[in-house]
Design a protein around this nucleic acid. Structure first.
Length: 403
RNA sequence: UCCGGGGUAGCUCAAUGGAAGAGCUCUCGACUGUUAAUCGAGCGGUUGUGGGUUCGAGUCCCACCCCCGGAG
């Protein structure tokens, strides 16, 4: 951990096995963990205004360096008072470094890269990755732009996020061990450069999280966890593609999580589904960000206590006509309080903006409830039973009622 | 009644006489540090009816039946 404590304090409360309840204190307020973090990649949680996100109970949202760099640019955001002022969001922010875009713009996304055999689905927007950094071609106007560790930290300084993530390379699933090892080492050199730039120029109150890479290889993950731990960061994130499927991902996480320093906040990058959070929390991970809940909402899929269907209820599929049930009984969100599946299915298939909003509110409510009740379960010493109950089909609020 | 236009997938419409297609709908699949209110796949046809010409007709010819517009 860094010597100069104060810009970010992480307080661990109750523990239940490896799972723990904690609070990350930032200049923009506390973040109670375990926490799910909605994505505000381009400066908004798609479909929602900031007051709605806050009303859902969220204390931290994630913005993206690459996208905000391309537009509207860090100067414009800095002039508006940073991401907080620009967005009108008073609570805490974390910014991703742009490292993931080196991967996603080249491969089109995690699923494409894992399922495809090579460059399937790529956007062709990555020009080259080298020791200095990565060259991109802007998808907006084709101009070439360069992001290095220093550029990333400078942009994040302009964004003024409470937590900055170091610039890394998200190693593809199909990369061989040799490439992953070399990439991970380069990520460590980039980490040192990020910290060096930030130490001299970064905002005092801005914390920096390092990112552990190493692919699916235990020795590389171990080396990376050690390197990041010793670098002097305020928290650690687990990055990289985590395997072919959930089983492999669980294995990678099970071997990686214990390698991280106990006292540090631990962020699992990009993961996100209901069962993933339950498993991650059990391993002592604290923070999870993911595009899935909000993306599924826009695609007509609601989260629901249905493990048989991967906790998804697809309102665009046939069969909801005349169904008077809410998405999830007992869910406190407006979609469930006021509407039934028949109506929501109709709205979503009609491509009504209201459907997008209602399902975003629902899915974010569901994720928030999942972590809120997980915290209660940990405090009560019953996390295992809680996770088992949710995995068996109980809603979070049924699995660990808060009295 | 006459003149003109038109009948092709559930809908809106393509297809120099040479292997009947697209979009939408519908059904299904995908989505994990968001270029994604997105993407992919599938179902779906006696080309209005009956004749004719032709090696070959959605296409050309004849008759009839519908629809639209105009005239009376």
């Amino acid at each position: 951990m860094r010597e100069d404590e104060g810009r970010l304090r992480f307080e661990i409360g109750a523990r239940d096995g490896a799972a723990r309840v904690g609070t990350i204190h930032t200049a923009h307020g506390p973040i109670e963990t375990p926490a799910f973090i909605p994505l505000a990649t381009k400066g908004s949680v798609r479909g929602l205004d900031t007051d709605e996100v806050a009303a859902l109970g969220y204390q931290l949202i994630l913005g993206n360096t690459y996208h905000l760099f391309v537009s509207p640019g860090p100067e414009r955001i800095a002039a508006a008072g940073g991401l907080n002022g620009f967005m009108g969001w008073e609570r805490a922010t974390i910014t991703d470094s742009g490292g993931f875009q080196v991967f996603s713009l080249a491969h089109g996304g995690v699923a494409n890269e894992v399922k495809g055999s090579g460059r399937a689905g790529g956007h062709g927007s990555i020009v080259e990755i080298g020791e200095e950094g990565a060259r991109f071609r802007s998808y907006r106007d084709g101009t070439e732009l360069f992001i290095s560790p220093e550029v990333s930290m400078e942009v994040q300084a302009g964004l003024g996020s409470d937590i900055a993530l170091v610039f890394d390379e998200c190693t593809p699933f199909h990369a061989d061990r040799e490439y992953t090892a070399r990439s991970t080492e380069r990520t460590h050199r980039w980490l040192a450069r990020c910290l060096a730039w930030h130490g001299e120029n970064g905002p005092q109150r801005q914390a920096v999280f390092g990112i552990v890479q190493g692919g699916v290889h235990e020795d590389l993950r171990r080396e990376s966890a050690q390197a990041v731990s010793e670098a002097g960061v305020d928290g650690l994130a687990i990055g990289g593609t985590l395997g072919r499927d959930k089983e492999e991902m669980r294995g990678v996480l099970a071997m990686t999580a214990p390698l991280l320093p106990e006292a540090a906040p631990k962020h699992l990058l990009g993961i996100g589904e209901v069962d993933d959070l339950l498993a991650g929390i059990a391993l002592g991970l604290d923070v999870f960000d993911c595009a899935v809940p909000t993306r599924l909402a826009r695609h007509g899929v609601a989260l629901a206590p249905d493990p048989e269907r991967r906790f998804r209820l697809d309102l665009r599929k046939a069969g909801w006509q005349g169904n008077r049930d809410p998405i999830a009984a007992g869910c406190p969100c407006p979609a469930c309080r006021r509407h039934d599946r028949d109506y929501l299915s109709y709205l979503s298939r009609a491509e009504a903006l209201t459907a997008v909003r209602l399902l975003c509110l629902h899915n974010l409510t569901y994720m928030h409830e999942l972590t809120r009740h997980a915290r209660a379960a940990i405090e009560a010493g019953g996390y295992r039973a809680y996770a088992d109950a949710v995995m068996a089909g109980a809603a979070p609020w049924e699995a660990a009622p808060i009295v």
